Simulated scan of single mutants.
Amino acid sequence: MIKLIECPRDAMQGISGFIDTAIKAAYINQLLEVGFHTVDFGSFVSPKAVPQMRDTAEVLELLDLHDAKSKLLAIVANVRGAEDALHFPEIDYLGFPLSVSETFQQRNTHASIQDALETVETIQNLCETKGKKQVVYLSMGFGNPYGDPYSPELVAEFVEKLAELEIETISLSDTIGVASPELITQLFEVQSQAFPQIEFGAHLHSRPEGISEKVLAALKGGCQRFDGALNGYGGCPMAKDELVGNLATEVLIEALEGEGYDLNLEKTELAEAMKLTGFVFNP
């Protein structure tokens, strides 16, 4: 079964002007009507680091989760953030960004890779205690711009360490949009065969014209979990090309349906969510 993860948090977090809490909640409530498997709705991180997400707890209070079709995921960057997120029974998943690149790990979470792995282990224990699941995003999973070591074998080493911690979901992340279709297929194929107990997701960034081929490449490698953001909003500021952003969900859907997948989405609600993006992101 294909799982679609809609990521308004990733789309919103880089916007300089603060999006009103009520507007965030109204947008996410609309997304909850569409039928996505999961909505990555917010993060419990330092408000100095990501000021746009400082109201995540307040947004959560405004969400209409009665008969919601989607699960909720929140990003955390340390144990304190995880503890904050675990206060809310409505949250199903905690997402943690672990990087293959030492430079990016330091920039993103102000910690070393070794420290980050220890944090993953602590969060995993907390999640098990609270009945939650942790999703680890393997950032710079297809290469990095810093000259740090990278190879598919290095990715496999990270996955093995996460498997030892009993992580069940790993999202391979093309943080700066450098992955070729060939590498995407190779990574998903090799990792899913080596670690069948792990669900591997695709959090890819791309220029608009490259989305479909990257989605199909991941599918070919066995990927059944895809992250996207309507209209392709958001992305990594480290990407050298300003056109590189999140996979546009509407293009992702078109590519998957073109391969014959029935995604069980409410298309009328999806159209309403598409209309709202202009108001939310370009007021």
Rank of each mutant, 00 (worst) to 15 (best):
A116P: 02
F36T: 01
G35V: 10
H66T: 10
D67Y: 03
L265H: 08
C236N: 00
S43I: 05
N78E: 09
K275A: 14
M238Y: 09
L165D: 02
E209H: 10
G235C: 04
Q30E: 15
E272P: 00
P283A: 15
P89S: 11
P145N: 00
F158H: 12
V45H: 06
E199P: 01
K130D: 02
L165I: 01
L65V: 03
T268Y: 11
E157T: 12
L270G: 04
A163I: 00
C236H: 00
R80Y: 12
F195Q: 03
N282D: 03
A11Y: 10
G235I: 05
P47V: 12
A255N: 05
L183C: 00
K48V: 14
E6L: 04
F18H: 13
T185N: 10
L117N: 04
A74V: 11
C127S: 14
E164C: 10
L243Y: 11
Q114W: 08
G42T: 13
G131H: 03
G278R: 09
A218D: 08
S101W: 02
L86P: 05
I198H: 00
T119D: 08
T268H: 12
E242G: 01
I170M: 14
A248L: 11
Q105V: 01
P237H: 11
V178P: 13
K71H: 07
E61D: 15
V136M: 11
F44V: 01
E213K: 05
S70A: 05
I19A: 00
K24Y: 08
L276K: 10
P181K: 05
A202W: 00
I198M: 03
G95S: 07
M1V: 03
H37C: 07
I253F: 01
A111K: 02
I113E: 07
L86C: 10
D241Y: 10
E166D: 15
I211E: 15
F142I: 03
L65R: 03
E209R: 08
E121F: 05
F188M: 11
P181M: 05
A11R: 12
V34I: 13
Y27E: 07
L252M: 13
S70T: 01
Y233L: 01
R107I: 04
E121H: 12
Q186L: 14
N231M: 15
R107M: 13
A77T: 08
A273H: 01
Y146T: 04
K132G: 08
G228F: 03
L204T: 03
D92Y: 06
Q134H: 03
Q193V: 06
A202T: 00
C236W: 00
E102T: 06
Y146S: 06
E33F: 02
V39F: 12
I198G: 02
L62D: 04
V45P: 06
N144K: 13
Q13Y: 09
E102W: 03
A163G: 02
M53V: 09
G260M: 07
N29T: 07
